[in-house]
Design a protein around this nucleic acid. Structure first.
Lengths: 145, 145
DNA sequence: CTCCAATGATTGCATTTTGCAAGCGATTGC
DNA sequence: GCAATCGCTTGCAAAATGCAATCATTGGAG
């Protein structure tokens, strides 16, 4: 073959590598739902306002798990249910999500009700993001990272 | 008509509204090139490592101008050249880009050379982002915002 | 003037991704 | 049993993307 070690990446630029993981219109919405709405199940993600379709959702969940942002586990009580959890890598997407929220609240026609949690985080100062990440760790990382 | 006031947005969520503007694999790369490489012309964007194609680049430039992130002006010295500038809205994407850079430098196989500017910004502390934004204002906003 | 390279795009076409609705097998609750 | 619910797949049309060729206009060199 011509190039047996071809890189799967368009470039080694940090911005580009991030976009290769979550640079689409859906991935960060799934992460958002896990962070701010406590969603963990396929059917819960499906019920979001933006109306993701089942095939796109299934595809993104697989890709996010492959990327190491989420993990997938069977619900011990309900064999049918799959439980998705944020990894530490996924939890550390919160600063990005928080900055997107800040930007949109300044420049986009956001729904005031949906802007409330972001405004509260801003009022909480620099420690609010860290505190929110720590809370997510307790929920998603059963103690260990 | 059924719904004369249909919203063009999937939802009023801040995260979603941000993704509707730059939630794709190319838009933020154009912004990155303007911020960190001083690129202002079509042909310069075209020369990036990731290899954007001409039709996609033209499409994104139009959309970013429509969204208010960039402005387009003719080069007074060269009538053929179009000069793109960041607006204040575009400059305020820097905190988002900086956080993406931080995340990728922690979790993705970034090129060390391309990571250097991000690392320097991190070493500069909280004021480094603000200083970089101020520098961009001087270049792109001829005095007024 | 004439030629030619360089400018910001546009076009045509094949491939990929998305959106949408229907359906699937397995499991649970009643 | 048996309907409802679970995560997920399939089929198919529409849209977005990737790629190469091409466009009209301009600027500069000779």
């Amino acid at each position: 073959m011509e190039n047996p070690e071809a890189s799967p990446h368009r470039s080694g630029c940090p911005i580009n590598l991030g976009l290769e993981v979550f640079g689409d219109k859906w991935s960060l919405l799934i992460v958002r739902d896990m962070m701010f709405s406590g969603k963990r199940h396929f059917r819960e993600f499906l019920a979001s306002d933006e109306g993701i379709s089942t095939n796109i959702l299934a595809d993104r969940l697989v890709k996010l798990v492959e990327a190491g942002v989420l993990t997938r586990a069977g619900d011990p009580a309900h064999k049918l249910k799959a439980i998705y959890s944020l990894t530490e890598m996924g939890i550390e997407l919160l600063p990005i999500v928080a900055e997107i929220s800040r930007w949109s609240r300044k420049y986009q026609p956001v729904d005031p009700q949906m802007a409330a949690t972001g405004e509260a985080r801003d009022r909480g100062g620099p420690g609010a993001v860290a505190a929110q990440m720590e809370a997510l760790r307790r929920i998603h990382l059963n103690g260990e990272i």
